[in-house]
Write a protein that binds this DNA or RNA. Structure first.
Lengths: 162, 162
DNA sequence: TATTGTTATACTCTATAACTATA
DNA sequence: TATAGTTATAGAGTATAACAATA
């Protein structure tokens, strides 16, 4: 049960701001501001939970994409995730060094290298995806399942073409 | 008019990924992934349009907050925007150097410094806020006004406490 | 000539430790 | 002792230019 909270006045204060919290009503009218704030909250929990796997956001996205797209190339990962090629090199090398992915020459293109998960990589991705699913449920606990679906659909409308 | 697009199969491909676009359906079930993708799109347009004012995202947020909270302190800005104090120093110095803000000693706390917009700062913020309002309308053009309101409300439910 | 992957490097953003002056 | 602001610095993330191998 929550007490009825008085709505703030519709005009900005003309006296020096003395309270702790500032008036953010204008910023809150922008999708960009709100998307970033929401992302910051989710990303913080994400970083905490994924630390046990030794995975950062980019690591998880890359491994998950390879899991569901075996044989994907670095170029495809870069295009899909908006990562610049030079910045993916060390990430891939680290994942390979940990024995999570394998690099096999592409059957039809001698320049390209197909990426595949190892058995260990498969297992780690499965655990990590479950962990992300769990933390997503927590961070969107204040949303109904229907609201969460709507939120995702509307976000996709913003960034997806056509 | 758009042609009916066939929905992709519900199973992941077991053959090497040969197509350009990868299967992102799993990542797209996460709020975090979608929020970041949407933010990336909005932020790119933001950077382009605000370049004419010489303002980056943090600059705009700070100036807008000061505009609507005259006398706000650095500490309040840091708390509100999740900026670390050391990272705000040069930003404030730059805005002051451009003659956009003034720093006046706080009336009741000798440690604190109240921040105020100059006349020039006021005018710039007014223009910048209008520009952001315009680009927000463009970047969320595929959303109805009602959908845009819903999107913002749901995002706030994710990051706002209580 | 264009593309894949790579190296080297620079720039921006964010984070930590320690200091000063006021409270 | 705690807080506001500052300095210096380190780390992470992101960017550009240029190269070798292949198409």
């Amino acid at each position: 049960m929550s007490l009825p909270r008085k709505k703030p006045a519709a005009t900005a204060p003309s006296t020096p701001a003395r309270s702790e919290r500032l008036d953010t009503r204008v910023l809150e009218t922008f999708v960009g501001y709100n998307a970033r704030r929401a992302w910051l909250v989710v990303t913080e929990v994400f970083a905490e939970r994924m630390a046990v796997y030794g995975l950062k956001q980019a690591d998880f996205s890359v491994l998950s994409l390879i899991a569901h797209n075996p044989g994907a190339t670095s170029r495809q990962l870069c295009t899909t995730l908006d990562i610049l090629p030079p910045n993916l090199v060390s990430l891939i090398a680290a994942m390979e060094g940990r024995g999570l992915i394998e690099r096999r020459p592409h059957p039809h293109d001698g320049r390209a290298i197909g990426l595949y998960l190892t058995a260990e990589g498969e297992q780690l991705v499965r655990q990590a995806e479950q962990t992300v699913t769990d933390l997503e449920a927590e961070t969107s606990a204040r949303l109904t399942p229907r609201e969460r679906e709507t939120l995702i659909r509307l976000l996709q409308k913003v960034y997806q073409p056509g």
